[in-house]
Design a protein around this nucleic acid. Structure first.
Lengths: 105, 105
DNA sequence: GTGATGCTTCGACAAGCATCAAACGATGTG
DNA sequence: CACATCGTTTGATGCTTGTCGAAGCATCAC
């Protein structure tokens, strides 16, 4: 049974928390990979693509930070975790932010 | 004699450094005030408007972080420091970022 | 010159954070 | 059932960072 992990409502988004989450290179790499596609996807696949050289506790920690910032939605399906960018919510609250941060170069 | 304090070139802008700088509420408050106007302005005036309850060493530190991130330009004129947002440089490298971060609500 | 003013640097401290190994929990497979 | 698998939580560690007081450094006024 899929169940969504706890996440903040759009109203309670905090720019400090969001920017702190995005400031970390590893987390931003995860977000960039995630932002590239639009389908919900296995978090391990994203972590694979992002190719950070980090232990699983650390990656789990980063996903948690992203989720608690409101940047991603995490759904537990069996042993897996399916993640998505909360595009609409982010766009509603901070228009253009994700695009500016994740498509920069 | 006005002299510009050392600052990074556009090419060496680092998104991690920029987002870390903007993640701090006090620094973001300074940036928001600075972003509101477009003229170079006395840094003390901005600090006044931002109304952070911080000591001058701390404010000086925050200005330094902003400058070293490439977000502002600082010009020493006598005992004063005149600051400006590096709008064009930021826009050239990370289009829409400042607007998204500083005009959010 | 002396003194005042505005900002920066130094040194210290507390809090926060990224990281990992180990242990845990839940889910799937035999 | 036992066992493997995937992810999380815990605890510990070292680094970074925001903060301040005190001292330092220019600059301006007298």
């Amino acid at each position: 049974m899929p169940r969504a992990l706890p996440e903040p409502s759009v109203d309670s988004f905090d720019l400090t928390v969001i920017l702190s989450a995005l400031a970390e290179p590893g987390r931003r790499a995860l977000m960039t990979e995630l932002y590239r596609g639009s389908e919900p996807i296995d978090c391990a696949v994203i972590a694979e693509k992002a190719d950070l050289g980090l232990s699983s506790p650390t990656i789990s920690h980063h996903y948690r930070v992203l989720r608690e910032a409101g940047l991603i939605r995490t759904i537990a399906e069996g042993r897996k975790r399916i993640v998505t960018v909360r595009r609409l919510d982010m766009e509603a609250r901070f228009p253009g932010l994700l695009s500016a941060v994740l498509t920069g170069r």
